Computed example of a mutant assay.
Amino acid sequence: MHDLIHQCADGRMLDVWRVEVNRRNPGHATLEDFASSTPTWEAIEAISLSLVASYVDKPASQDGDFRNASLVLGRLLLYVELCHAMKHGDIGRVERTFLHWVFVFKKVGKHKYATELVRIMNELNHVYPPGLARAIRLNWLCNPTGKPDGFRAVDWLVELMNLFTKVVYGSSGYTRTFQLIIKQSPLIELFRKVHTLFQDNFHLVHRSVRHAPPDTASTLKVLLDELKKHNPHMCTPNRPAEVKLEDHLREGMYILQTTTGIARETEVTGTDTEEGQGEDEELDIEVDIDDLEAAE
């Protein structure tokens, strides 16, 4: 699903670029034509800013298909932004996406996610001392490989260590005991280094199960052909849409603004409910939309 979201985002962004450069210069029928004109970096930046202003999040558009496409593109870009910020360890950018996700989670009925995001935003900006808040931000992500884009969530590393401890080096048969797993758990990193050392000495260069990034050129071509055929990113007034997509961002914002506090599902069920079902309890601490905007 993660790869699918990124491929959809890439395809839609490329199609938006195609529409915009063709609108500015009819001679640029394709992105290849635009690239062959050797545009300056300043021109590319200017077009990028124009794309955000003209093609992203247009719920009031009179073109139904264009409206839907703009909402989809807005949510895709938010996801891509979050992934990119996490991979590069930019916790400030990660934190700035939280408020948008709060609105989305409120709209789809995931109240606990929204509640916890609001809670941590409020505590980091208004409750915790600056030193503690900084320590939390610096330890939200970890980088096991040391690569510039190798940051991961801490729970991902915990699950990886669980895999090594319980499965890879957990023994088998009658020797696989709880006591043995506990005894060997501090040595997992040593086992990994010895394993890698043997593989390097025997020149086992293809030891990794990781593969090169897939070539998505053919996938993107099919997607771009379909987008060009239907032209959802070209605004055509009064064009009807078969389905009117919900604007999760603004509708979630409305829900948040019209409730007295951040609602949480009752502790009896322990699960979120669909929108409109069940009774929500108010948290002891009430945080409204003004508090969140002040934290930006």
Rank of each mutant, 00 (worst) to 15 (best):
H2Q: 14
L4I: 05
H6L: 15
V16M: 09
V21Y: 05
N22L: 08
T30K: 00
L31W: 03
D33Q: 09
F34Q: 02
P39R: 05
I44H: 00
I44E: 02
I44D: 04
E45Q: 12
I47W: 04
V56E: 02
Q62G: 12
Q62A: 15
D65M: 12
N68G: 11
V72Y: 04
G74F: 11
R75W: 06
L78K: 07
E81R: 15
L82H: 11
H84Y: 09
A85T: 01
A85H: 00
H88R: 10
D90Y: 07
E95Q: 12
E95F: 09
F103W: 07
K106L: 13
G109Q: 00
A114R: 00
V118I: 12
V118F: 00
I120V: 15
M121Y: 01
M121Q: 06
N122A: 04
N122G: 01
L124G: 06
N125A: 15
V127G: 05
Y128V: 03
Y128H: 10
R137Q: 13
L141A: 01
P144M: 00
G146R: 08
K147H: 07
D149H: 00
V154G: 02
E159D: 12
T165V: 11
V167Q: 05
V168S: 02
V168D: 05
S172Y: 09
Y174N: 13
F178N: 14
L180F: 02
K183T: 02
Q184R: 14
K193G: 08
N201C: 12
A217I: 10
T219D: 09
L224N: 06
L224H: 07
E226P: 01
N231R: 14
P232D: 02
M234F: 10
N238T: 03
E242P: 04
H248C: 13
L249K: 04
Y254Q: 13
Y254E: 04
I255P: 06
R264Q: 14
T266S: 11
T266H: 08
T269L: 15
T273Q: 12
G278V: 04
E282N: 12
D284Q: 09
I285E: 10
D288T: 07
D290R: 00
A295I: 05
E296D: 13
